[in-house]
Design a protein around this nucleic acid. Structure first.
Lengths: 351, 351
DNA sequence: AATTCAATTGTCAACGCTGTCAATCGACCC
DNA sequence: GGGTCGATTGACAGCGTTGACAATTGAATT
C-alpha cells in the first residue's frame, strides 16, 4: 500500500462495501447514486453493508471519475447578516442531496471578475452557482458562467435574464401593502427613502409604494423621495432632509430597516414623539427592527427559505440539458407584513 | 475519449501544460506544488506554459491522488452577522494558498453530533477545521476530529485544550478598560449584564469588569449582575430589573451590543434621559451599535482578522506532524475600545 | 428444449493528478 | 578517461469512483 499521510486512517472504500454485500463495486456505486436497475433485494443488501461499515463515498474520487462534482458555489460580494442566514438555508437543501456548498466572496468591482469566476469553476467543477446581488446583475459573471456551461441562479436580480432562473420575492406587492397600512391610518403625506441604485429591491419597493399612493389618488412629492443608499448613515441625512421639509411628512417609508432606524434616530433628535408625531416603516425585518424603540413595522424576508430554493433550483437542473427548460422556474415566495409599534394614526392635519 | 457531460468543455490538463513546456507532467506538478528540486529555468518555462494555457489544476484530482484535499471546514452552529464577516476573512487567507472553505452548519444540540462530524470529514477529507463557539467547546466534536487526526482550531473556547490552538481576543482586558471608562466618569454603582452561559466571552468580560471594580475598591452588588443571555429580549427584562432596583445603577455594562440596545430601550421607556441619567456600554461593535441613539460605547472585535488567523493556523500546521507543536500557537489580537455617546459622567449622587 | 429479450450485474479502463523510485545529467575529482 | 555524487527529471502505478459496454440471469415465448 501507498503511504498515507494520515497515519492509520484507512477509511472504508466502495470495494470493501462490495465485498461485504457480495456484489461488485459498480453495483454499490449504482445504489449510492440511486440508479435504476438494481434489484430491490440487492439494494437492501448493499445498503445494509454501507450501514454496517459506516461507509462514506469519497467526494474527490466521485468528482474525478464522474460527471458530477457534488459542489455548488455561492458567490457573494459583501458579507452581512442575511448572507449567513441565506447560506444556512442553501446548505440545508444541499445536505438532503449530499451536495456541498463552497462560499466564495467575489469583488463586484474587480476588473478581473470574469477571470476569477472562470478560474473558480474550472478548479472546482461546480455543478451550479448561486449569485447574490449585486453579482446577480453583472454580465461579466453571467458570461463566464454561461461560457463554461454552468447553471446559475440569480437572487433578486434587477433584470431577469431570459432562460435563466432567479429567486425573488414580490417586494412590490409587499411595499404596496405596507403603504396601505400607512394610508389606512390616515397618512397622506408620506416620504419615501430609496435604497441603493442598481438593486432590484430599490426599484420594486418604490413601485409598490407608488402603486398604493396612486390607487388612493395621493400625490408623491418629489422632494420626499430621496435615496439613503440602504445605509444607516446616509439614511440619517436623508431623514433629516425629509423632516426639515417645508411641510413635514407624517410618515416615512424607508426601503430597509437600517435606514428606518436612522429615521427613528433623526426624529428623536428633533424631539418628535414616536410614533405619535411620525410613523416609520422599514423593510427586511433585520435584527435592528426589534432592537430599537419603537420597534419597526416592516416586511419579513424569508431569507433562509430563499437560500433553500436557490439550491433547489440548481439541484433540479438536469445536467445534460444545457440551458434551462422553458419556462424557467420562477418560484413564488410570500413576504410577511409585520406591524409593530413604529406606526400610528396620522396626527390631525394642521390646516 | 470518454464522453464528458459538459459538451465541448475540455479544460486544460497538466499533460497539455507539460507538452507546452517540454517537460513531464510530474515536473509541472512539482512547480504547481512549489516543490524544491526544479531548476529555476525549468520552473520559469513551466510557469509560462501555465500562464499561456490559463491552466487551473483540478481540485478533485489533486485531492484523490495526493495526501492533501485543499479543503478546510468551517463548522458553526447558528448563523449571524459575525459569521459572514469571519468566513470572509478565512476565505481570503485560504485563497492565498489555493485552499477552499467548506461551510457546514452543525446542530450543537444534535445527539449525533460526532457522527455528523465524522461523516463530513471522511467524505471531504478536510485538511483542518475551524470551530466557532459554542462548537469549540464540545467534546463530541473534538474527539471525532482527533480520532480522525484532523487539526482543529478553536475560536474563543471556554477552556483551551492542551496541544490545540485557539484564537481569541483579550476580552478580559478590554472589559476592564471599558469599565475604567465608566469609573473614570464617576460611576460607582454599575450593573453588569452577563452573556450566555458556556461562552468564553461571557466569562472573560465579567472577569474584566470585576478586575476594574476591585482595582478601585468598588463592590459589585450581586443583585446587579444578571444574565441577558446575549439576546435583546432577555436583555430587556434584565435591564428593567436593574433599573427597578432599590438603588438604581448609574451605568449598565452589557456583555454585547444587542443587550446594550435593550438597555437603551428599557431606559427610554422608563423616561430616563440618555446618557445623562444612565450610561450604557456594549461589546462587539455590532451593526446595531451605531444604529441607535445614543450610539453605543463598545469594543470592536476584529472578526475578519480572527477568521484570517484561524485559517492561517490550519495552513501553517504541517500535515505530517500529528498533533500540534509545542508550544501551540496563541496569536494575539487587539481589541479596539470605541467611545461613543452612550456614556456620560455619572449624575450627582442622591443623598 | 431452444430462443429471445429485458433486467440485472460485472469487467475494465479512465478521470487528472501525485508518490515512489529509477534514470539522467553535469560538475568535480582522482 | 572513468568514477562519484547530488541535483533534476521522468516513468509508472495508483488514488476511489464512475462510464461504457459486455456478460449473465431468468422468465417468457416458440
Amino acid at each position: 500500500m501507498r503511504s498515507q499521510s494520515t497515519p492509520g486512517r484507512e477509511s472504508t472504500t466502495i470495494e470493501r462495501v462490495a465485498e461485504q454485500a457480495g456484489v461488485s463495486a459498480k453495483t454499490v456505486s449504482r445504489v449510492i447514486n440511486n440508479e435504476p436497475g438494481v434489484r430491490a433485494e440487492t439494494r437492501e443488501r448493499v445498503l445494509a453493508a454501507i450501514e454496517r461499515l459506516d461507509y462514506q463515498p469519497n467526494l474527490a474520487a466521485r468528482g474525478l471519475a464522474g460527471a458530477r462534482s457534488f459542489l455548488i458555489g455561492l458567490f457573494y460580494d459583501k458579507p452581512g447578516d442575511y448572507l449567513s442566514e441565506f447560506q444556512t438555508g442553501a446548505v440545508q437543501r444541499c445536505r438532503e442531496s449530499n451536495l456541498h456548498l463552497m462560499v466564495e466572496p467575489l469583488e463586484a468591482a474587480s476588473p478581473d471578475l470574469s477571470g476569477a469566476v472562470s478560474r473558480l469553476i474550472r478548479q472546482l467543477r461546480l455543478e451550479g452557482v448561486i449569485l447574490l446581488p449585486p453579482l446577480s446583475d453583472l454580465p461579466a459573471v453571467h458570461s463566464a458562467l454561461e461560457h463554461a456551461g454552468i447553471p446559475a441562479v440569480d437572487i433578486a436580480p434587477m433584470r431577469r435574464r431570459r432562460d435563466a432562473p432567479s429567486v425573488d420575492t414580490d417586494d412590490r406587492a409587499a411595499a404596496r401593502q405596507l403603504t396601505l397600512e400607512l394610508i389606512g391610518r390616515g397618512h397622506r403625506r408620506i416620504a419615501f427613502m430609496l435604497g441603493r441604485a442598481g438593486h432590484r429591491a430599490t426599484e420594486q419597493r418604490y413601485l409598490g409604494f407608488s402603486d398604493a399612493m396612486q390607487a388612493h389618488g395621493l400625490t408623491v412629492d418629489p422632494q420626499l423621495v430621496q435615496s439613503g443608499n440602504f445605509e444607516f448613515a446616509e439614511g440619517l441625512e436623508c431623514a433629516r432632509r425629509f423632516l426639515n421639509a417645508a411641510e413635514r411628512p407624517s410618515a416615512i417609508f424607508a426601503s430597509n430597516d437600517d435606514m428606518a432606524a436612522a429615521a427613528v434616530c433623526a426624529a428623536r433628535q428633533m424631539g418628535l414623539a414616536l410614533p405619535e408625531q411620525l410613523s416609520i416603516t422599514g423593510f427586511d425585518d433585520a435584527p435592528v427592527a426589534t432592537m430599537i424603540w419603537p420597534q419597526l413595522t416592516t416586511v419579513r424576508q424569508p431569507v433562509r427559505a430563499i437560500g433553500r430554493i436557490a439550491a433547489e433550483l440548481i439541484i433540479q437542473h438536469k445536467p445534460h440539458q444545457r440551458g434551462w427548460p422553458q419556462p424557467v422556474p420562477r418560484p413564488h415566495l410570500d413576504l410577511e407584513l409585520i406591524v409593530r409599534g413604529s406606526i400610528a394614526p396620522a396626527p390631525p392635519r394642521k390646516t
